[in-house]
């Protein structure tokens, strides 16, 4: 088993599949009255969050607690970090406290790589800048597999601000590793110039309507309205008209296709409320699956056996 999960590229097909299978076993716990395993009793998991992210932090916290780990939440606000402590000094502090795993969310790409050089425990990337968010990709893959029965050969469209999206990067890497084919869709300003760097097989389209009829999965990315100020697109209205998923567009999808969103959503911008709340939408399931996927990652990285 790998020691750190810094990038979805750390996962080969066998490891990724093992994590998804383990997540399945973890999910079966959720139906029990006592939702707790003793597996990580006595182990310490630190949630080191430099960015506000309630949903991801809570998800990791629930995952660690269901495995009986001791959880320390270290948020950048109201801590020594806001007094200007460096990442290295924070890392040395966590090291001295004996953290077995550090879950890090950070606004700088590559912060988990730096952290891994300074602590002995496992480092789990919970989102770094515009780089990656590998556990999101794992829970997305888990959700697709649960709904559609397989990943190999699936056709997945990832739609929106791919350029700035850590969710997109991790999903492209993981889905490609697991045999799915990915099409990135968005205005050309929000698609990286060198998509082949992520995966040679990834396709690009600027026309959402033409892509939808061939997809098994369409994943809508959150689009930040401040991108308008930087001239990535002219207005929320134009973005929504060209790349938003409304009911009419959803009808272009094959009957079995699902709609995903990593949240938080801009309802009415990249996704219409009727679509978000439809039976094709997996958005609430994704949240539940997030806990199972993160339990699997903690369990396996901290030395549990499958």
């Amino acid at each position: 088993m790998i020691k750190h999960l810094r990038s979805a590229a750390d996962l080969d097909a066998a490891t990724a599949t093992l994590i998804l299978d383990t997540a399945g076993e973890m999910a079966s716990l959720a139906g029990r009255e006592v939702k707790k395993l003793p597996t990580l009793r006595g182990r310490t998991v630190v949630n080191l969050f430099y960015e506000d992210s309630t949903r991801t932090r809570i998800s990791f916290e629930a995952a660690a607690k269901r495995l009986s780990a001791d959880v320390i939440n270290f948020s950048a606000k109201g801590s020594s970090v806001s007094k200007g402590e460096s990442l290295k000094d924070t890392a040395l502090t966590l090291q001295a406290m004996g953290a077995d795993a550090v879950v890090i969310r950070h606004q700088a790409s590559g912060a988990p790589h730096r952290l891994a050089a300074w602590v002995d425990g496992s480092v789990i990337n919970a989102g770094d800048g515009t780089h990656e968010h590998p556990t999101q990709a794992l829970l997305d893959a888990y959700t697709m597999r649960s709904r559609l029965g397989r990943l190999d050969g699936l056709r997945v469209a990832i739609v929106g601000d791919v350029l700035h999206s850590r969710v997109a990067r991790s999903n492209v890497l993981l889905l490609t590793t697991l045999g799915a084919s990915v099409t990135l869709v968005g205005p050309p300003t929000l698609i990286p110039l060198d998509v082949a760097a992520l995966s040679r097989s990834t396709k690009v389209s600027y026309d959402l309507d033409s892509v939808l009829p061939d997809m098994d999965v369409v994943m809508m990315l959150r689009v930040q309205t401040e991108r308008m100020q930087d001239s990535f697109f002219p207005s929320a209205r134009e973005y929504s008209r060209r790349y938003g998923l409304d009911l009419a567009r959803m009808r272009r999808l094959p009957e079995h296709a699902i709609v995903m969103h990593p949240g938080p959503m801009n309802r009415g911008m990249e996704i219409a409320p009727e679509v978000a709340d439809s039976s094709r939408s997996t958005i609430v399931e994704q949240v539940a699956n997030g806990v199972s996927a993160r339990m699997a990652v903690l369990y396996l990285l901290l030395g549990g056996k499958a």
Partner: peptide, 15 residues
């Protein structure tokens, strides 16, 4: 900007 714009910057998520 953080590094040369190209394949590597795309992979690393650096501007």
């Amino acid at each position: 900007a953080q590094m040369h714009e190209g394949e590597v910057s795309t992979r690393l998520g650096l501007t």
